[in-house]
Computed example of a mutant assay.
Amino acid sequence: MSSLSIRALAIGLLLTSGLLAACTSTAKDVFKGVDRIVAAGDLHGDYDQYIKVLTTNGLVDEQLRWQGGKTHFVQLGDVVDRGPDSLRIIRHLMKLEKEAKKKGGRVHVLIGNHEAMNIQGDLRYVHPGEYSALISEGSDVLRDRYLEAVYKHQVSIDPTLAANPGPVMEGLKKKFPLGYVEHRSLWEPGQEIAKWVASHNAVIRINDSLFVHGGLSPHVEPQKLSKINRRVRSEISVRFDGEGLSNSQDGPLWYRGLASNEAEVELAPLLEMLKFYDVNRIFIAHTPTNGAILTRLDGTVIMIDVGISAHYGSSLANIVIEDGTLQVMHRGSQVPFPGDGLSIQAYLEMVSALEPLDSRLKKYVHSMDDQLAQEKEKMPQRAVN
């Protein structure tokens, strides 16, 4: 049975419950004169790490209420998947958005590829705990109704299945765990969480910087941010199975060229693109680093997906821009960003010293040190006169 047919059944079940609604929205995507920005990468269902980001940057009080004043907090997408607490994070972000706005601040939750995947029914990376968190007293009955509809559909395609329904139903139970139908009742286009996601942007500009989950390809003609955001929101607000910005490898949710292409390929067109948007740099997530925020392409690209979630090793770092000065909050300590006399190697040594002994970053920096030492040994020695 195709995933499209199964999805159609899920939508039919939700429609009979009167749960689907239309979703249209607009969102401001350019902000100027912001004194303090805090930006963090992928969270992937790790609530505890998410809270650490908020508390170490002074954004919430002991009751987890907004205390960041006029700070703009940017979460660059991929709140969901790979961890069990995505919905818990989303519920808190919903609350925090309202609280921050009342205090003159903002919470910007950008759309990531995993949010789009959940809305469009690609559930390969949904953590089992996400389904478990949605189980209630009525889950058994709700799932039985759904399984019965799926079973009848399969039998209509292959009548021989009716001769031995037991194994078929057992297979369906494994494929659609308790909580699955509730998950779809939140994430189908027009549903509560899908609608909330689609009320946000894929890319925003704050002061002299762009923020986006995957990246903006400099190899395609640049478009106004408002046009990009409208297209992405439009695509994830309905059932969308075609090729578009929300699922293209060159689109803002998926593009990895800024994180991986060589400067010979990427830098010149990137500089032209930044000029078009009248910004100096672009912050991206999506592509995990070895545990530290990194810069590339002459400082025009800053990679901030350090692998915050347990799935990627529980690293902890985010960007802080205060009065135009770019710094890194690394495991609760604010350190200068490389540049202006601070080399990448010195920066990595500095943040590595803040890491636990078994961290990915510490191992990475040690391997870099070993490599440099080996290269030094291979260098010809100058004769001493």
Results as ranks from 00 to 15, higher is better:
residue 301 V to G: 00
residue 138 G to N: 15
residue 326 L to C: 01
residue 103 K to P: 00
residue 219 H to Q: 07
residue 84 P to A: 13
residue 118 N to V: 01
residue 385 N to A: 08
residue 190 G to A: 10
residue 102 K to Q: 14
residue 360 R to T: 11
residue 215 G to Q: 11
residue 172 L to G: 02
residue 191 Q to Y: 00
residue 109 V to W: 05
residue 244 G to S: 08
residue 17 S to L: 11
residue 20 L to R: 14
residue 218 P to G: 07
residue 146 Y to V: 12
residue 67 Q to D: 11
residue 67 Q to H: 07
residue 216 L to K: 06
residue 159 P to H: 14
residue 45 G to R: 15
residue 141 V to R: 12
residue 381 Q to M: 03
residue 17 S to V: 02
residue 199 S to I: 01
residue 228 I to T: 07
residue 347 Y to W: 08
residue 360 R to E: 09
residue 212 V to S: 02
residue 23 C to L: 06
residue 158 D to S: 11
residue 48 D to F: 08
residue 278 D to W: 00
residue 296 R to K: 14
residue 207 N to K: 02
residue 210 L to G: 09
residue 31 F to D: 03
residue 384 V to C: 09
residue 347 Y to D: 05
residue 104 G to R: 10
residue 242 G to K: 15
residue 19 L to G: 06
residue 219 H to C: 01
residue 173 K to E: 14
residue 267 L to T: 11
residue 278 D to Y: 01
residue 104 G to D: 06
residue 234 S to L: 09
residue 355 E to T: 15
residue 8 A to L: 05
residue 377 E to C: 01
residue 28 K to G: 02
residue 278 D to L: 02
residue 78 D to W: 02
residue 38 V to D: 11
residue 236 I to T: 05
residue 36 R to G: 00
residue 144 D to E: 15
residue 222 P to R: 12
residue 285 A to G: 13
residue 179 G to V: 03
residue 112 G to K: 10
residue 89 I to F: 02
residue 194 A to E: 07
residue 100 A to W: 09
residue 14 L to H: 08
residue 32 K to G: 09
residue 77 G to W: 01
residue 91 R to F: 05
residue 306 V to P: 00
residue 136 S to A: 10
residue 368 M to V: 11
residue 284 I to N: 01
residue 301 V to A: 01
residue 368 M to W: 08
residue 15 L to P: 00
residue 146 Y to P: 01
residue 118 N to P: 02
residue 142 L to W: 08
residue 166 G to P: 00
residue 382 R to G: 03
residue 62 E to S: 10
residue 240 F to H: 13
residue 100 A to G: 08
residue 130 E to N: 14
residue 132 S to P: 00
residue 146 Y to D: 06
residue 362 K to C: 01
residue 234 S to Q: 15
residue 111 I to Y: 12
residue 66 W to Q: 12
residue 368 M to E: 14
residue 241 D to P: 00
residue 305 D to R: 11
residue 304 I to M: 04
residue 32 K to L: 12
residue 57 N to M: 06
residue 70 K to N: 09
residue 292 A to R: 01
residue 143 R to T: 09
residue 173 K to P: 00
residue 378 K to H: 03
residue 349 E to V: 06
residue 12 G to E: 13
residue 358 D to I: 06
residue 340 D to S: 14
residue 223 Q to I: 07
residue 361 L to T: 01
residue 237 S to D: 02
residue 374 Q to Y: 08
residue 110 L to P: 00
residue 305 D to K: 12
residue 369 D to L: 05
residue 294 L to K: 09
residue 352 S to A: 14
residue 14 L to A: 15
residue 380 P to C: 08
residue 9 L to Y: 06
residue 4 L to D: 11
residue 143 R to E: 13
residue 323 D to N: 14
residue 15 L to T: 14
residue 16 T to M: 13
residue 333 S to E: 15
residue 309 S to G: 07
residue 63 Q to T: 12
residue 41 G to E: 06
residue 182 E to G: 04
residue 21 A to Q: 12
residue 26 T to S: 14
residue 366 H to R: 13
residue 284 I to E: 02
residue 350 M to E: 15
residue 181 V to E: 10
residue 66 W to C: 09
residue 138 G to I: 07
residue 248 S to R: 13
residue 350 M to K: 15
residue 112 G to L: 09
